[in-house]
Every structure is written in structure tokens, then in C-alpha cells.
């Protein structure tokens, strides 16, 4: 067995095992940590496939930003496990049944007969001075430059949407409202009250 094959089976094992642990874990924080392990295994597999840039992006963006955001939310919200897991076992048979059937069907379609080495030959490995980032950048900044800019706009929209959803105006904040200032009337500010004259009792 070649070294590359050993690596493939090792990373695949960790990918599948941590994914299973993620969906079966009863603690949401543990699920998030197992998902981080599966992302690491996926990144290792992508390295085997010579997609170095995307492997590093997966770790930096997904593990570094997205999963930390998940962990923040999990720790911030007070999640009661008992009610959330009440239906856990109820849907287990149908979930496993659907998954097994889909895996069987896809294995039949994607088997060695259709995508084996004699159909799709093993590509030649690149030399050690090959740069995946340069190759990607050459395409990204020429052919795919408009989708790239659209992706930037999409991220901006996501930032604005997330802030608009979450931001709650502070009730104690002293904020100037020009409309209220212009529309104010004298009767809103000064209240004239007629008070009947009276004498203090001890002066009499």
C-alpha cells in the first residue's frame, strides 16, 4: 500500500468518524468541536488533491471564523438539552434508513465501473515549484473577475443584514432627533398653571 493511500484512508476515517460523532453527540458544543475535526480532515484530503489554497482557506475561514462564531452563539444562548433531544430517538430509524439507501444508490452510480482509473486516469503530479495560488489567481482575476466582485458585494450585504438583524437601539442613548426639534411647539415645552393664592396658616 502506498503512502498516499494510507493518508487517504486515515483522513477519510477521521472525516467520517467525526461527522458521525457530530450528529450523534448530545452536547451542541461537542458537535461544533467534532465539526471542526471534520473540517480539518476535509482540508487534509483537499491537500492530497493539490488544492492547497482552498485547504488553507477552509481552515482559516471555516475553523477560524465560522466555527468560532458557532461556538460563541452556543455558549451565549442558554440551550436546554433535555427538550431539544426529546425527539432524538424517534427519528433515528428513518434518518438512518434514508441515509443508507442514498449511500447505496450513490455507490452504485459512482462505483469503479464509472469513475475508475481506466475511465478517469490518475493525473500527473505537479512539480514542487507549482503554485496553486498563482493558478487560481490567474483565473480568478481574469475570467471570473465579475463573480469575484459580486462575491465581495454579497459579503457586504451579509454584514449589513447581520448587523441590522442583531442591533438593538440602546434606550438610554441620548440621540438628537432633528425632526422632533423642528416640529416642537411652545405648548409642548411650557405649561401654564393657574394657582389660587393662599396664606400660610401660622402667619394668621
Amino acid at each position: 500500500m502506498e503512502f498516499e493511500q494510507i493518508l487517504f484512508y486515515l483522513f477519510s476515517f477521521w472525516f467520517i468518524a467525526s461527522s458521525l460523532a457530530m450528529i450523534l453527540s448530545r452536547n451542541t458544543a461537542f458537535s461544533a468541536l467534532f465539526l471542526i475535526l471534520s473540517f480539518f480532515s476535509a482540508a487534509s484530503l483537499w491537500l492530497l488533491l493539490e488544492a492547497e489554497f482552498l485547504a488553507i482557506i477552509l481552515i482559516l475561514v471555516y475553523v477560524g471564523a465560522v466555527m468560532v462564531l458557532f461556538l460563541f452563539v452556543i455558549k451565549m444562548l442558554d440551550i436546554e438539552d433535555s427538550t431539544l433531544r426529546a425527539k432524538f430517538t424517534g427519528y433515528l430509524p428513518i434518518g438512518l434508513g434514508v441515509a443508507v439507501i442514498v449511500i447505496a444508490e450513490m455507490s452504485l452510480v459512482l462505483g469503479v465501473d464509472q469513475f475508475g482509473l481506466d475511465v478517469v486516469p490518475q493525473p500527473i503530479r505537479h512539480a514542487s515549484d507549482y503554485s496553486n495560488i498563482t493558478e487560481l489567481a490567474m483565473e480568478l482575476y481574469t475570467i471570473y473577475v465579475y463573480p469575484f466582485e459580486l462575491a465581495a458585494v454579497l459579503l457586504l450585504i451579509a454584514i449589513i443584514a447581520a448587523i441590522t438583524l442583531i442591533h438593538r437601539p440602546d434606550k438610554r442613548a441620548k440621540k438628537q432627533s432633528i425632526e422632533e426639534q423642528v416640529n416642537t411647539q411652545a405648548k409642548d415645552r411650557v405649561r401654564l398653571v393657574s394657582i389660587a393664592p393662599y396664606k400660610k396658616k401660622d402667619e394668621q
Partner: peptide, 13 residues
């Protein structure tokens, strides 16, 4: 499919 089964199993959270 593991992800799909996870959606079936944990459909309350």
C-alpha cells in the same frame, strides 16, 4: 448522507 441523517435525527435544534 451523514449530514442528511443528522438533519433527520436532530430536527429540533
Amino acid at each position: 448522507c451523514i449530514g442528511l441523517a443528522g438533519i433527520f435525527i436532530n430536527r429540533t435544534n
